[in-house]
């Protein structure tokens, strides 16, 4: 079964895992929730997609099995991960989670506070 074709699948998977791992390091190391959001959503989405593609390829090659479910999965993750990240970041901001001290500018601040004030 160790055809050369499978190596491609294996590479995809390995690459995916490495990306996921890197993003995990990012999640640990990055200073605030907003920056971590990048690591969490973008990289890990990429990582997982790569892994899924690898898996898909593997089954396609080794068993000739084309899984619609996997495709759906890929699609779904692709569709929802950004939204989820968006929601989290927004909720964090609205809850007043502070930006890291290294941040240069908070563009939303002005807009946000105006709205809050106008409400009152």
């Amino acid at each position: 079964m160790h055809g050369s074709d499978e190596v491609i699948a294996a590479l995809f998977i390995l690459a995916g895992s490495i990306i996921v791992f890197v993003s995990a390091i990012g999640i640990i190391r990055l200073p605030d929730v907003y920056t971590r959001s990048h690591a969490a959503s973008k990289s890990s989405t990429l990582g997982v997609l790569s892994t899924l593609v690898g898996t898909l390829l593997y089954f396609l090659i080794s068993e000739g099995y084309f899984s619609i479910r996997l495709i759906m999965g890929i699609f779904f993750v692709f569709l929802t991960a950004p939204v989820a990240a968006h929601l989290i970041a927004r909720s964090a901001y609205r809850n007043g989670v502070p930006l890291t001290e290294k941040s240069i500018e908070d563009e939303l601040k002005k807009y946000y506070f105006e709205n809050e004030l106008s409400k009152k």
Binding site: I27, V33, S37, A40, I88, A89, S91, A92, N95, V97
Partner: peptide, 8 residues
């Protein structure tokens, strides 16, 4: 923060 946790 909670957001961190949710994110994780």
């Amino acid at each position: 923060s909670s957001a961190d946790r949710i994110q994780a």
